[in-house]
Amino acid sequence: MALALTTALPACLASDGSREAAVPASVARGARLFDGTEPLAGTLSGHSTPLPVVATRCIQCHSGPGKSTNAASDFAPPLDRRQLREARARRGGPPIAYEQASFCRTLHTGVDPAHIVLPRAMPRFDADDAQCAALWDYLTQGPAE
């Protein structure tokens, strides 16, 4: 019993000895997609040439969950559970709330659930279903703030 406990204990501790909560794989992947560690292909509306990877990092323009407001959020809204899941008026349209399917559709098409077209500066992403789900999981993790 003592051997099993001592071999399991290191898996629960971070390298500095503090306790570390387990992060689901999809949330971890979503964080990598959001910060650009894992590339996400995209183009600008009306163009067929793929954008450079540095231009498709979500963090370039948006702050994410648990992040303090930064200069990026002056350019584009923060993306977190509250911003996505609560019904709010956006871009002059009626109040909308995102679900995973509408979020993914918006990433692909640049059109939100109220049929309002996002600005051209927002890339249209070639995200597959797993990438979309991972981004959604990351952005909507935890309780609404």
Rank of each mutant, 00 (worst) to 15 (best):
T6K: 09
P77K: 03
G66H: 05
T109V: 05
S63C: 04
Q141C: 04
P10H: 08
L33V: 02
F75S: 13
D126S: 12
S63I: 07
V23F: 00
A101S: 12
S15R: 15
P123M: 08
A130R: 15
A8D: 14
A55C: 09
C104N: 12
A25G: 06
T56R: 00
G66S: 06
P10G: 09
T49D: 14
P123D: 05
Q141L: 07
A127P: 07
M122P: 02
A89H: 04
A144R: 14
D74V: 11
T106F: 04
M122T: 08
A14C: 07
G42Q: 03
L5N: 07
M122D: 07
V54C: 02
A101K: 10
P143S: 13
A71M: 09
F34K: 01
S48Y: 03
S63A: 14
C132M: 10
T37E: 04
P24K: 01
L40C: 04
Q131H: 06
Q83T: 10
C104S: 14
F103Q: 01
G92S: 09
P123G: 05
G46H: 10
Q141M: 09
A97H: 10
E38H: 02
P10T: 09
R29I: 01
H108W: 09
L118I: 06
A76W: 01
S26P: 02
A87S: 09
P95F: 04
A130H: 15
C132F: 03
R90L: 10
V23L: 05
R29V: 01
D129T: 12
P65Y: 01
S18M: 10
S15M: 12
R82V: 03
C104A: 15
A11E: 08
S48C: 03
L51H: 01
Q83A: 13
L107E: 00
A121D: 11
F125D: 00
I116W: 05
A22F: 07
A134E: 02
S73E: 03
D129L: 06
P94G: 13
R29D: 05
K67A: 13
L118Y: 05
Q131W: 02
D128Y: 10
L9W: 13
I96W: 00
G36C: 03
E86G: 08
A127H: 13
F75P: 00
D128K: 08
R82W: 08
F75V: 14
G92M: 07
P52E: 11
D128P: 02
V117I: 14
L40W: 03
A25T: 12
A89E: 11
R88N: 09
E86Q: 15
A87Q: 06
K67F: 07
T69P: 01
V53T: 14
A76L: 06
A134Y: 00
H115D: 15
